[in-house]
Design a protein around this nucleic acid. Structure first.
Lengths: 269, 269
DNA sequence: CGTACTGTTGATCAAAGTCAATTGAGGTGG
DNA sequence: CCACCTCAATTGACTTTGATCAACAGTACG
């Protein structure tokens, strides 16, 4: 079996309704885009797409021909391996997310990116991306804000695993998923397609799969969430957020006066 | 007592010998700099400096007048507070490090940066930084690489607290400090000035101060390290690295072909 | 010279890990 | 279409790591 189907084929399970690409949808939350912006972006995301049938590792291209992946559909997970023990899940990439901007510069040591079954990605060369941000300042601005959020999320994960008990960790991660999913239109009626296994969830939270299972059980028994067939359903959002000590501020763009925004945190060559 | 002494004064304890600023030294490890580059950088770092006498929080400026701090001497720590419990130490800034590039865009929610006693910083406005990277492409390139490493470190901390036991966590953090310290010329004969308290160390590793203390004791008893008067001394580096499962790859710049380096991961406005 | 951190040690306890066995579901090949 | 195989989920019994509570010593600094 090939890992990739032919570029034109569709994944077995669509987790997003048709419409603008998730990335476009997300960026428009940050800054208004012109029709031209939206068009350019959508076009770029349609040039070189791939769909995987089953869960499989993703390459970021050869050293000479590196590319950046944008999630169109399905999820990806970045794992960081260590000598002993399970790999650590360090990031989840939902539709509309970049699979680690930094991977353009080269693969990170000891980390692998796994695509969920049925995931669809768009591949972007560095040149294409550079052209895009050069010709579309609003998109560039939105991308900066988005990448700030991505780094904010990584930081929150660190806080999550160190400062919260197992119960709150799981709850917090689920809250994050729901909010991120909403931002890209993946949530319908509190239902979010989520291809992670319980072991993944455990690895993200620094717990064992066994313990994670028990916690999910109590969340189910308390009718806070249910999780059947790779779909997370949040039944009682308030209770979930309370248990998680969840504060969504880290997922919102830092409101930046346009004066200080220009070109600062992203020095260009 | 004022938090800041007058700009020209020296801190009470110099942790670095005189010479080029730590930042210059660090950047030169990435890419060769011209005399002009070095000069511009050193000049910029001399324009607006501050020294604190005692441990104190650092502001990143008013919304209208934000600045970026570069460590010249001493350390800074970024703490992320949570509702219940100790703040989490999310990053340490050694001489030559930026105190969170992102802070230029605005303060991060719930995080505070503390300067160690005797720390000296240079303050950089966004405009100044933008000019610098525009006029000095080699510096810009080095800054990109450096910021990649900074993000790599944050990721490693996540792995550290989730995938290693208390003993290895502490050892790993100390290994990191030594390697980072060496890169900026702060280590002399395996001695590194380190203003952290045991409680800080504990907060960085997701442990309690009590437990951290016990672990430091065993490390001392085994003659792996000693830690007296805010100076860390690594007596047996191999043993420390072994206990830590330490692999310094994440602290080294990803070797990047110059073809893919340009302007990609740092889209400019 | 006292006040407030910081470091140190002991005793006890609980949260989460480990080991092990079983069930269930989805995909594969005959 | 069914038998089979693998992976994911589930549950129980037991263990251990590191947290918690408490008290005290050393040290820096105003």
């Amino acid at each position: 079996m090939r890992a990739f189907d032919n570029p034109a084929s569709q994944g077995p399970q669509q987790s997003r309704a048709a419409g603008p690409p998730a990335l476009v949808r997300k960026l428009e939350r940050f800054t208004p885009l012109t029709v031209r912006d939206r068009h350019a972006l959508a076009h770029l995301l349609s040039l070189d797409t791939r769909t995987v049938r089953s869960k499989s590792p993703m390459s970021t291209g050869s050293p000479a021909n590196r590319f950046l992946a944008v999630m169109l559909d399905g999820w990806a997970c970045s794992y960081r391996g260590v000598r002993s023990g399970n790999p650590q899940l360090v990031a989840c990439h939902l539709p509309g997310d970049f699979c680690d901007l930094q991977s353009l510069a080269g693969p990170r040591p000891n980390t692998t990116i796994m695509l969920s079954a049925g995931a669809r990605i768009a591949r972007l060369s560095g040149e294409k991306l550079a052209m895009l941000v050069r010709d579309h300042p609003q998109i560039a601005r939105a991308l900066r804000l988005d990448s700030q959020i991505a780094s904010s999320i990584e930081r929150e994960w660190l806080v999550n695993v160190t400062r919260r008990d197992a119960h709150a960790r799981i709850a917090h991660l689920l809250c994050e998923f729901i909010v991120r999913g909403e931002a890209v239109g993946c949530v319908e009626n509190q239902h979010l397609p989520c291809p992670l296994t319980q072991a993944d969830l455990a690895n993200a939270c620094g717990l064992t799969a066994v313990h994670t299972n028990r916690i999910l059980r109590t969340l189910r028994e308390d009718e806070v969430i249910s999780w059947r067939g790779h779909v997370l359903h949040v039944q009682n959002r308030v209770r979930l957020a309370t248990r998680a000590d969840f504060c969504p501020a880290y997922l919102a763009p830092t409101t930046v006066s346009s004066a200080t925004d220009v070109d600062l945190n992203w020095p260009s060559a």
